[in-house]
Design a binder for these strands. Structure first.
Lengths: 161, 161
DNA sequence: CAATTTATTGTTATAATATAACATAACATT
DNA sequence: AATGTTATGTTATATTATAACAATAAATTG
């Protein structure tokens, strides 16, 4: 089997079912370690986030969840907030949308590359960017508590067309 | 007169009235050069943005504007969109708020450092960060169209308390 | 200059995103 | 079972933003 040349291709031809299961399994583990509860509802929301596998809005998730329930907005927002705090999903400020975290547990979370055409997203793990930012902020004496880097543009596949 | 040790101090003891006038004058110039119209309404919105001199929401601006008119939301959003496209204000995705651009005309717009305590904001002009991001995106073949970097934390003044 | 087109602003209504506040239920520990 | 805690359900509403169309002002052309 050939190696994918980049993350975007990886995204296109991955085994989706397995990828969801992996993410959920890892989430169980992480929650167990942290002593926090991945309840059925939270787990289901996380599953939906991964099933979409691209940035997805809270109300979209709500509809998907609703197929089997009568959940209302606070339900989904609470679940998403929990998952965010647990480091299992990210909120994308430029999209008002959510995405499963590609590397939960990691200290650093790299730039998000968001394709404006196909809505695919890749989470890079680029220490260099965070380092560059750290240098600037230190220079002016600013104490960082959180950091978001969102890059919009065209993924390799969408540039061709 | 002593040199300020960093941008945040600069922010604290600047001549506010003069700073607003400078920004407006520069805006006039830029619009003239670009052949776009800085109408009285747009100019007034820009003036309010600078008067606040920290990230300010669209509805806050609307209220401030309303003191002399009956403006409704589209009015303010249209003005803000125009000012954004003209490169005169930035929208902060993490705050749903707007701030006057510190260096209109520049090609690059650096990281925004947002103090969670006093809501002050500094726009750095850090080529290094943009360079680091460019390197990462090139590596995966992603074509950048826009870029946002928002850093939250504590400014030097607020760390002391 | 009047006529016409284009750009801007006004107005009404509503969409999209998110949270406050309180009620109920589940769970965990005694 | 009694108690405290965490999680979920429910109602209402806040906040942010835009669509669609009407009226006005400014620029352009004949």
């Amino acid at each position: 089997m050939e190696k994918p040349t980049n993350q975007f291709e990886q995204f296109d031809n991955h085994n989706h079912a397995a990828c969801i299961e992996t993410a959920l399994g890892l989430a169980e583990q992480i929650c167990r370690n942290k002593g926090i509860r991945l309840t059925p509802l939270r787990r289901e929301v996380l599953r939906l986030v991964w099933e979409n596998h691209r940035p997805v809005g809270a109300y979209q998730l709500l509809e998907q969840l609703r197929l089997g329930s009568q959940a209302k907005p606070p339900t989904i927002y609470r679940a998403l907030n929990f998952l965010q705090q647990a480091g299992l999903v990210h909120r994308l400020a430029t999209l008002n949308a959510y995405i499963g975290c590609a590397c939960p547990g990691d200290a650093q979370h790299g730039p998000f590359l968001i394709c404006n055409r196909c809505q695919s997203l890749v989470e890079l793990n680029a220490t260099s960017v965070n380092t560059a930012i750290a240098r600037c902020t230190e220079a002016v004496g600013f104490q960082v508590s959180s950091l978001i880097v969102e890059v919009h543009g065209l993924c390799p596949g969408c540039q061709e067309r």
